[in-house]
Write a protein that binds this DNA or RNA. Structure first.
Lengths: 228, 228
DNA sequence: CGGTATCTTGATTGGTATCAACTTAAGTGG
DNA sequence: CCACTTAAGTTGATACCAATCAAGATACCG
């Protein structure tokens, strides 16, 4: 089994504040899992007996509305930690985490994390900061959803995705999302998202390579996102 | 100056975990403020050199969108603590807090809170739990904003307001909100909110007493909120 | 190669924003 | 206390945006 103190992924999240001996102990109680594309890491209503550290791959964090529509709230990538919130609030998860590609994740049991929260203020403080930052993101998302048009949200989403995931060798946004996923991020019908994508393409703001999206005119998208 | 260890409001927030001596020290460095209706406690871009404990009154937490529209994200009442997030993330505030009625708030300086975060794990843990709970709320709000119609959101908002603020002697929801405020909570134009309110009234789901709103048929509103 | 999921475009409907006019309520100063 | 001013609330008409339904095209998979 690989060791946590040698895991490079650790550097990206709150676990970086743990001591070598904490990490050694963690190595012994963690379990590693392979999650296939499309499969859940956890789902709404699941009781999470620990947290997940994403070693490789990307997943979507989503939630069903009472209307039966799926809303993607966040996309999580290598190095992120998920599940801390349910652990801290001691409730079942209110969110789904579903793999967008094959993933490798480490499960760290509850007791281990609780012990670190109690013993290691730097770790706790980092979790606090991460949550404060998430809350700020959420505030922004609420305002966007409430006040911006679907077109604005799509433009903004494309820009955010490129910033977060970069571009691959052909210059396309480096994440594999279906049209439906994109629609579920911006909170609209799949057809509407598709229609707007082809409008953007017609205006040469973006281009397609298969289903992959290439941002051609970033400036245009920024203008649209800000309402011009 | 009144003393924190005798302040009843403390029981409602994370400060309840502080020791008597911590509270004594806090009493000496806190300052009490009167905020008039309509005035800000703090605004977007302000650097908050501490947190505010709401001793009395109600305020709205809002944020401007790039479109120039105002979105109310939360309503804060007696006993709540605000400003911790900006303090924790060490950034300027991304939100406005504006009094909806005359208020009395206590300002607790940064150093005092930081000291407690460092020294008192129970306090820190409670802040963490509060933030985890806020995040859950935010998730729900994002989904609602993205997926529900304005009518659904209005029905839901009225129910939430009644749950949170109760009813006054005439049976009306016990918080003073303008029609514009209501529109800014649900993220729509003032006229749209008004139109839907009078539709609800026509259907006898709600009634008016001046501008105050009385929920007559809770069941109806619940059905509407859930999409029927 | 056939079947299925995903993607795409068209036509229609309904919901919501916007603009404009008007009414009512809430100050404010003489 | 009244006349005046201004803010808040209300209603109507119109235009636009986005959801929905329907049909067809393309890609994917066993």
């Amino acid at each position: 089994m690989s060791k946590c103190d040698q895991c490079i992924v650790r550097q990206f999240n709150s676990l970086k504040h743990l001591s070598k001996e904490d990490l050694m102990r963690m190595s012994n109680c963690k379990t590693s899992k392979i999650i296939k594309k499309g499969e859940p890491i956890f789902e709404e209503g699941d009781y999470l007996n620990g947290v997940y550290c994403i070693k490789d791959g990307v997943c979507k964090i989503s939630k069903m509305s009472e209307n039966g529509k799926n809303q993607i709230i966040n996309i999580i990538k290598r190095g992120d930690l998920i599940g801390e919130r349910s652990l801290i609030s001691e409730e079942v998860s209110n969110l789904n985490a579903i793999a967008l590609e094959d993933m490798e994740v480490c499960f760290i049991p509850r007791d281990e994390i609780v012990r670190d929260l109690e013993k290691n203020p730097a770790f706790t403080m980092d979790i606090l900061k991460t949550m404060a930052s998430s809350l700020k993101n959420s505030d922004n998302l609420i305002v966007d959803m409430a006040q911006k048009s679907v077109k604005q949200r799509l433009a903004e989403t494309l820009l955010k995705l490129q910033t977060k995931f970069g571009v691959n060798e052909i210059g396309a946004i480096d994440i594999q999302l279906s049209r439906e996923d994109i629609a579920n991020i911006i909170g609209t019908a799949t057809e509407s998202a598709i229609r707007l994508l082809s409008e953007f393409k017609k205006n040469k703001s973006i281009g397609f390579k298969g289903k992959n999206i290439i941002i051609i005119n970033k400036n245009d998208l920024e203008k649209i996102a800000n309402g011009f």
